[in-house]
Simulated assay, not measured.
Amino acid sequence: MKVVSLSKDSEHQFSKGTCESLIFLKGHGIEGDAHCGVTVKHRSRVKADPTQPNLRQVHLVHSELISELKISGFNVDAGTIGENVLTEGVDLLSLPRDTLISLGSQVVLKVTGLRNPCAQLDNYQSGLTKAVLDRDKDGNLVRKAGIMAVVKEGGIVKVGDSISLKIPPEPHIALERV
């Protein structure tokens, strides 16, 4: 399990620029990223209530999704769908809420929930929203656009750093959109 790409953007752009390392700030998010802060920074949520806690400080996506989208004909790459951390070998969507994700030797993230795919995906490429939504065997909606987390321990993460997980004790709480 490892970090394959890192991205940030100081504006509220849909896609983020890739970089070799990121500085994670405890309780805030990623230095220089538009979503960094104690309170919510996503524009639609700020409009609803700017005092909400920021449960979406860091966006993680599994690289396997990017590969799947490319095979389906979408022009996507690292940072394209707005993620900060692109992982390899981690089944992000199956993690329970409150899982601790260690990136490298310093940074610890706490999983808060699922990213809810939005119309910005289709604004980027037609059909992309539908491509990151699915149904499980019981017909329940599956959101595949990654997970959200908050920074519990800050530090520097570099491309290629290892990833380790600490699953919370049972009973596990399934991820919901945040």
Rank of each mutant, 00 (worst) to 15 (best):
131 A>H: 04
130 K>R: 13
133 L>D: 02
152 K>M: 11
150 V>Q: 00
132 V>H: 10
154 G>L: 07
141 L>P: 01
131 A>N: 03
146 G>Y: 12
124 Y>R: 01
125 Q>F: 00
131 A>M: 01
131 A>D: 00
152 K>N: 06
128 L>N: 04
150 V>Y: 00
142 V>G: 02
136 D>A: 11
129 T>F: 10
126 S>W: 00
147 I>K: 04
135 R>M: 11
126 S>Q: 10
154 G>V: 01
126 S>G: 06
149 A>I: 06
152 K>D: 07
148 M>F: 12
125 Q>H: 03
153 E>D: 15
134 D>W: 13
138 D>R: 09
130 K>C: 00
134 D>S: 15
130 K>T: 07
130 K>D: 13
146 G>P: 08
128 L>Y: 04
145 A>M: 12
144 K>I: 03
130 K>G: 03
133 L>M: 10
144 K>W: 00
125 Q>N: 03
141 L>S: 14
150 V>A: 06
126 S>N: 12
129 T>N: 02
137 K>Y: 08
146 G>M: 10
139 G>Y: 15
124 Y>A: 01
133 L>W: 02
128 L>W: 09
141 L>H: 09
127 G>P: 11
130 K>Q: 14
141 L>G: 01
126 S>R: 13
143 R>K: 15
127 G>D: 10
137 K>Q: 10
138 D>M: 03
150 V>I: 15
147 I>P: 05
135 R>H: 08
136 D>P: 04
135 R>S: 11
142 V>F: 11
128 L>H: 07
125 Q>V: 01
143 R>D: 01
142 V>K: 13
132 V>Y: 08
131 A>G: 01
144 K>H: 04
126 S>C: 04
137 K>A: 14
147 I>G: 11
143 R>P: 00
148 M>I: 05
136 D>W: 03
137 K>N: 07
146 G>C: 08
127 G>H: 13
150 V>L: 05
128 L>F: 05
152 K>H: 04
154 G>E: 09
132 V>K: 03
134 D>Q: 09
137 K>I: 12
139 G>W: 13
151 V>I: 04
141 L>E: 13
136 D>V: 02
154 G>C: 09
134 D>A: 15
127 G>E: 09
138 D>I: 01
143 R>N: 13
135 R>E: 11
152 K>S: 08
135 R>F: 12
154 G>R: 11
143 R>C: 12
130 K>M: 05
134 D>N: 15
149 A>Y: 07
126 S>I: 05
139 G>V: 09
129 T>M: 14
149 A>Q: 11
149 A>W: 04
132 V>E: 06
132 V>L: 11
152 K>C: 05
126 S>E: 06
143 R>G: 02
148 M>L: 14
140 N>T: 04
136 D>N: 15
144 K>L: 12
136 D>S: 08
138 D>T: 10
136 D>R: 08
148 M>Y: 14
153 E>N: 15
141 L>R: 15
142 V>S: 01
147 I>N: 09
134 D>C: 06
151 V>A: 02
124 Y>D: 03
148 M>R: 10
148 M>D: 00
137 K>G: 11
144 K>M: 09
143 R>W: 14
149 A>S: 15
127 G>C: 07
144 K>V: 03
